[in-house]
Design a protein around this nucleic acid. Structure first.
Lengths: 210, 210
DNA sequence: ACAAAGAGTGAATCACGGTTCACTTTTTCA
DNA sequence: TGAAAAAGTGAACCGTGATTCACTCTTTGT
């Protein structure tokens, strides 16, 4: 017995793993999962191609982990918006939608990769989790708004899915390019579309709209 | 001079081309453009792989044509809904949305391939046309509804994009599977979500909702 | 300082799928 | 019928990108 992993080595390995994930994330954010090529990752992380396989069993595993981490970040942002205690369920939801939209618009490639780009079954599995998390987050806010009688009875899951779709399509679809309005205006408009979709009552009462 | 294409040959070639396109369409409808592989197409069409290249210069060209045809069919259906002369702009739009949703739900793989699956630049080019056609169709109906003062002023293009996104996500996203409601109920619900998104006034006036 | 054990390497290998091409078969017309 | 022209064939080729592996370099404990 002459070798046993020590703290120094463990730290170095952890660092390398971080660099791999960082490099992978950058590639995906720049050009989607199609750009996640093993030797590109290795090159950007400053290691040899073969070394990647000391850290991740295969590309699938790496891709799934990259997806998971990116996902976590995005979902956390939205979750935090929904946890503001000082406003009604509908305002919180509006805030969360706006945040979701703004972040997607600022990193459209990443948003597209997370929402739409097909990769492989392992990543699709992750994507299912991701969408479920979003759907659950938005849906519970919708449910609260229903309970508080801010909006009429409806299927919260279906509504929240529709909202995610509306935002995704409007912001990252190929038509998004043609929009000439400033970022904030677009996200606001699309957010309002979503909120109206949920809550016709609210606007009919106040008379405020658009 | 001893050979000149005759009607018989022309007809046979036309038939073969049809079979190729039919086979391609089936493959795409079953599993998306990823399943559009040249030897699979050839096999299903009952010809040799090499023969494909007598009909289409390369895969890109074939894929683009498959996309174009599928697109045309879908857009025509929607267009026809919007041409009903016997109802207001908003009802027509609702009918068109419902049709769009029902067709997507009945052929989810195809809908996904047309709406979201990334393929290659040539197909993406086609997809841009496709979305533009949809967007223009829906947007002109939205514009009419605005002119008729059925709904408030808004950016028709953005609204129509959002509606397409909402339907696509709700119906073909991975969450769609979990829905237990019957087809008609789902498409109705999601259509209503879209219409409300456009038209808070309408519902505030009549008081009818959900 | 040395040997065991792991970490790092990158060129070679492999799998996959689009494309080609030398060849065979069919069609046409003099 | 025969020769020109085109259509049909499918095995071989090729590019791309993931994965492997025989090797070298580091680290560790005696």
């Amino acid at each position: 017995m002459a070798y046993r992993e020590t703290a120094k080595v463990r730290d170095r390995k952890a660092l390398t793993e971080q660099r791999i994930l960082q490099a992978s994330h950058e590639l995906v954010a720049e050009a989607g999962f199609a750009a996640l090529q093993m030797n590109q990752v290795a090159q950007r992380a400053g290691i040899a191609t073969g070394s990647l396989y000391r850290y991740f069993a295969n590309k699938e595993t790496l891709a799934a982990e990259v997806f998971r981490q990116a996902t976590e970040t995005e979902v956390d942002h939205v979750r935090r918006c929904l946890q503001q205690a000082d406003s009604c369920a509908l305002s919180r939801l509006e805030y969360a939608l706006q945040t979701f939209a703004e972040r997607a618009l600022k990193a459209p490639k990443l948003a597209w990769a997370l929402i739409a780009e097909p990769v492989d079954p392992a990543v699709d599995q992750q994507r299912l989790h991701y969408r479920l998390q979003y759907a659950n987050l938005f849906a519970s806010a919708v449910q609260q708004a229903i309970d508080d009688q801010l909006i009429p009875e409806q299927d919260p899951m279906l509504s929240s899915t529709a909202m995610v779709g509306a935002i995704a399509e409007a912001l990252i679809g190929p038509l998004a390019q043609q929009a000439q309005d400033p970022t904030h205006a677009i996200t606001h408009t699309i957010t309002q579309f979503c909120v109206r979709g949920l809550a016709p009552f609210r606007y009919s009462v106040t008379g405020a709209s658009l």
